[in-house]
Design a protein around this nucleic acid. Structure first.
Lengths: 227, 227
DNA sequence: CCCGTCACAATATGATCAAATTTCGGACTG
DNA sequence: CAGTCCGAAATTTGATCATATTGTGACGGG
């Protein structure tokens, strides 16, 4: 919330000078992706201008962008909310994720360096820790970071973009599942992925990725059906 | 409860019920998709406010949305333009289109009614006419409409959304290809698709769709390489 | 050739208008 | 007499615009 005023102060850090609408977008995107906003929860422009302390134009732009991303939906007349996934939605997401992300894994296999793989392994170890601790937020962030890091090495920006879009769609619902079942039931095929990466076996990497996705998503599907 | 009220005030566009930012989005989207804006061409906010006769807020929102769609790109410093596809871009688009759109075709096969198929055939006949006439704009619109109509019967909004996004990306470049080579060299696997639909052979429909996509996209790839 | 100044375009805010939902009051019915 | 239903006013929210501010790039002078 203080991210608006510090334009002048942290100009020396070299990181700043992002426009406000970009910051609002990043903030909201993170809140949605990691489930700080509950599915079905309404989102109002004026509420956000108030809570974020910026004018309405940047908020409007960020919301439009997130709607286009599928991270927010246009609920009837002039009302937006975090989407609630139906069973058919989840089923489509499973197909799309497996298609796109398996390919990203496959492409990354030939490109990653051994040190990249080490970095992934480190991420996975921290991920295991969050699972052991029951740290849902940490799990969501690190799980995403693991996949994001892997896919970043595929050198395929368009496919990457599609994958990001898919993650934005199921992020909020994944949080709900974790909140209900805890982290212990979560699947983790990451060790298979890492081993296959070391072996430079692209098909095995793709297969492990597909399994990781399928298990996680079907868990989500079951939980949503139950609700 | 929704009585139709005629807004006689808006004389410029002639119709009135959608918000302005939505109209701006649709207009720009259409111009980009059907190649009325050339790839690489810069797009300015003020230019659009002037030419479209609306304030800048709606224009800004529309542009953000189109950037998120991948239909426009953020060229460095506060400048946006229609994207120019590289070879690796096209190659990724081929993969994604075949993955997603083949599945849409597959799903549509079980759902389409005979009259739906007749409608598709009618579209395809009009499409042939545009090819014979060398009518590039008509070809682009009808070709898109053919696929859109087919996919609409797949009852898979999320996959549909992904497909639309992909079309937005290659639309402008497709126009360039047609402008260079004319319409006669364009592939048309639509008759295979229609025949397979009538036979209710989902795999054959998917295969024909994949071939239609691959031929068209590779033609585009060649043309871009040549340039 | 470098630096300062000027101009233009984009960003951001607040005000204003329109629409919709909600709430409150009254009337009608059981 | 009480409960419910309908309608109008009020509040809340969204949409648009006009305007001020800021940053960037270009042009000209030193």
């Amino acid at each position: 919330m203080d991210l608006i005023k510090n334009n002048a102060s942290d100009a020396k850090t070299g990181e700043g000078k992002k426009p406000a609408h970009e910051q609002v977008y990043q903030t909201l995107r993170s809140q949605i992706m990691y489930g700080e906003l509950v599915p079905g929860q309404p989102v109002t422009i004026q509420g956000l201008t108030d809570s974020l302390g910026v004018g309405m134009t940047p908020v409007r732009e960020a919301i439009r962008r997130l709607i286009s991303d599928g991270a927010l939906v246009f609920q009837g007349n002039r009302r937006v909310s975090v989407p609630l996934l139906s069973n058919t939605d989840v089923e489509q997401l499973i197909f799309a994720r497996i298609s796109i992300e398996s390919e990203l894994s496959r492409r990354a296999t030939a490109i990653v360096t051994p040190s990249d793989i080490d970095q992934l392994e480190q991420l996975d170890q921290r991920l295991d820790q969050t699972i052991a601790d029951g740290d849902v937020s940490g799990y969501l962030r690190l799980n995403h970071q693991f996949h994001e890091t892997l896919y970043a090495h595929a050198d395929a920006p368009i496919l990457n973009d599609l994958a990001e879009r898919l993650w934005l769609r199921f992020g909020p619902s994944l949080r709900v599942v974790c909140g209900r079942f805890g982290t212990h039931s979560l699947p983790d095929r990451h060790k298979d992925i890492i081993a296959a990466l070391r072996a430079r076996d692209a098909e095995r990497v793709a297969k492990a990725t597909a399994q990781d996705i399928e298990q996680g998503m079907e868990l989500m599907s079951d939980a949503l059906t139950d609700a």
